[in-house]
Design a protein around this nucleic acid. Sequence first.
DNA 1: TAGATTGTTAATCGATTAACAATC
DNA 2: TAGATTGTTAATCGATTAACAATC
Lengths: 213, 213
Amino acid sequence: MEEKEISQAVISRLPRYLRFLGELQDEGVERVSSQELSDIMRVTASQIRQDLNNFGGFGQQGYGYNVGYLYGEIAKILGLHKEHNLIIVGAGHLGQALVNYMNFERRGFLFRGIFDIDRRIQGTQIRGITVRPMEEMGQFVRENDIDIAVLTIPKSGAAKTAEQLVSYGIKGIWNFAHVDLHVPEDIKVENVHLSDSLMKLSYNLASCDKKNG
Amino acid sequence: MEEKEISQAVISRLPRYLRFLGELQDEGVERVSSQELSDIMRVTASQIRQDLNNFGGFGQQGYGYNVGYLYGEIAKILGLHKEHNLIIVGAGHLGQALVNYMNFERRGFLFRGIFDIDRRIQGTQIRGITVRPMEEMGQFVRENDIDIAVLTIPKSGAAKTAEQLVSYGIKGIWNFAHVDLHVPEDIKVENVHLSDSLMKLSYNLASCDKKNG
DNA sequence: TAGATTGTTAATCGATTAACAATC
DNA sequence: TAGATTGTTAATCGATTAACAATC
């Protein structure tokens, strides 16, 4: 059965829908129309309906959408009903920050191991997780059913490490290193290029300056 | 004089061009054609030329682009020739990670102050920068010509803090809090929603599973 | 039933790609 | 000059918005 490919533009909006639906749920709201959601989220009602209908008819004519149900369905679409086992590769400040950010665990992203090249921090613990040497990575990935690696190492070592991770059987890489990783097409890479983001802000500030003299 | 608005899609690609040009420069490459760049970057040569020509003709027919010159021009477009004074609001793990990430400073993004609500860490130093109480933020922003605030506090306080920052005269907010900030339209907000990014990865893993049974 | 609101098709808009004349 | 490659216009593709029939 032929599944039509969903565009990444649509995927990118799903977490935001989830967030607003979660807030409505916390407020005790039970139903919401695409128009109400449109007002809150500042996107068109048409886009909301189009986006959702990529995955199925979650609403009901004349009623709208049930907040709790829709929340659950989007969570499922995003794969949040399953648990993921993660490792952090690179125990620098950023790696530590991510391990310490509790919200990921609540979503089923479980940090199982931390790896670093620096002997001085190997053996220490971060939020109860021991920092291990890179050499143990392969075995650890295989034995602990790790599917996602978080890459928080400098760009110099990133390509080689990514290649290793793939050979160990990793399925996804959350890449904070400032390089384009080249991996087989069944391996998913999600990039977070912080400096690119900051440059975008810089551009928008500069272009605003120019407009206003 | 009417400047045509550049789409955010184009802006988003500029930092990547800059990165690849920087690498070519490091390799001692002096000239590059859109086709060569296309091969390296895996985007169409047509897109590269279109993108660049939004800002002017940086190339030369029959020659291509001078790597160093183009690098400099894109840097200027992104506003990287000017210095920016930043403060970090929220000295948690993520805030600390950003302060410690040296590369921003090399690009002219200078961390001038750090603020946190927690009395216990006020007065301590992070990379030589004293953590100050939130109450001093307004005065500090005005006295130190701060134009960018990095918001690394929990979502609960983010909206109010953003409002304050705007009233103090901040021009841009690099927002890591998991909320949509509502600010006047001359204030630029760049969002980094890490959990959204991780959910996108999760989706792509899940959709791949489904395809492959 | 009448009113409301979805699901879905059609129209529009914008972004990407292709093509080629201009020109170095 | 001849060859190469840009800058730019035209064609295509995809994403967003509008409209409305279906239906709860």
